[in-house]
């Protein structure tokens, strides 16, 4: 798996500049609409997707040097807020927009249009020294809601459990709350235990996992690096317990997988439309697999 760029990079606005010298070269791709020179696409949101969005932007600009794509992270909530406030062309989100966000957007005169651009597994990670290697969704829910506080209750050593989570503006946080803590039941009002550490970046989570044998965390599969142990997850007690991978996400065997989205304000037009149809094409979906995500199309 490719080692992802450090998410600290999300703080930097990465603007990939088109090479001016090749501006006049005719587009070689068939079917692309006529070039408008100096088109800028502003793309912002999910930290899970920031490396993927960057890789797409780079590859796309090799083909279309006249289009500039600026990619920023900040979290799915941040991207969606920017879409509602009208400051981005495309918002990246690792969760679907909520009903109240759509209502807010419509009150602002923005009609969000959704595209599923890739799929992702959420990996449960612990320190390599932790003997626990498989957990069910129910146990994960008990851990994060504060019912289980010691690894001994799960067949591990007698150590307190330190729960790590992304901040509340992260789509991964919201997905984990809905699909793991509440097991997908909308009537369930379980919350994260207040003691849960809310870390502002994926890097914060991996740094703590690598050095703390008490810790448990979750993050997109693309962010699992060396020094972290991935826990197999089962739907019911007794298994089967499945490790996350492109195959197990595709075959729906791994239970905590989700779609990754891009949102535009209204039906995409012009360059944005061309970019999105390229993303759903074969080359862009190959990049998805290269980065450890799962392609949206089979």
């Amino acid at each position: 798996m490719a080692l992802p760029l450090s998410p600290i990079n999300r703080a930097l606005i990465v603007i990939l500049m088109a090479a001016w010298g090749t501006r006049c070269a005719p587009s070689t791709t068939a079917g692309t609409p006529p070039t408008t020179t100096g088109a800028i696409i502003v793309n912002k949101g999910s930290d899970t997707m920031v490396n993927l969005a960057l890789a797409w932007a780079e590859a796309y600009q090799e083909q279309r040097p006249d289009v500039q794509i600026s990619v920023t992270g900040g979290g799915s909530g941040t991207g969606i807020a920017a879409l509602i406030n009208g400051t981005v062309d495309i918002a990246n989100a690792s969760r679907q927009m909520k009903a109240d966000e759509i209502a807010e957007a419509e009150a602002n005169g923005v009609r969000p249009v959704e595209f599923v651009v890739a799929r992702d597994a959420i990996a449960i990670v612990v320190n390599p020294a932790n003997p626990v290697s498989q957990l069910t969704i129910d146990r994960l829910s008990d851990i994060y809601s504060g019912l289980i506080n010691n690894w001994a209750e799960l067949g591990g050593e007698d150590r307190p459990i330190v729960r790590l989570s992304r901040e509340t503006n992260s789509g991964t946080h919201v997905y984990f709350l809905e699909q793991v803590l509440r097991k997908g039941e909308s009537a369930d009002k379980t919350l994260f235990a207040p003691e849960t550490l809310l870390l502002p970046s994926s890097e914060g989570i991996s740094a703590e996992i690598r050095q703390n044998p008490n810790a448990i965390g979750y993050d997109g599969l693309g962010y699992v690096t060396e020094g972290m142990k991935v826990v197999a997850v089962g739907r019911i007690e007794g298994g089967p317990f499945v490790l996350p991978s492109a195959e197990t996400v595709d075959s729906l065997a791994y239970p905590i997988a989700r779609d990754l989205y891009m949102y535009t304000a209204g039906e995409p037009q012009g360059e944005v439309k061309a970019y999105l149809s390229w993303i759903l094409g074969r080359r862009a979906q190959e990049i998805v697999s290269e980065l450890g995500f799962v392609p949206a199309l089979p």
Binding site: G77, A81, N85, E101, L198
Partner: peptide, 9 residues
């Protein structure tokens, strides 16, 4: 700092 970016005006 952590939450200002996500909120809608």
């Amino acid at each position: 700092a952590a939450e200002m970016g996500e909120v809608a005006n």
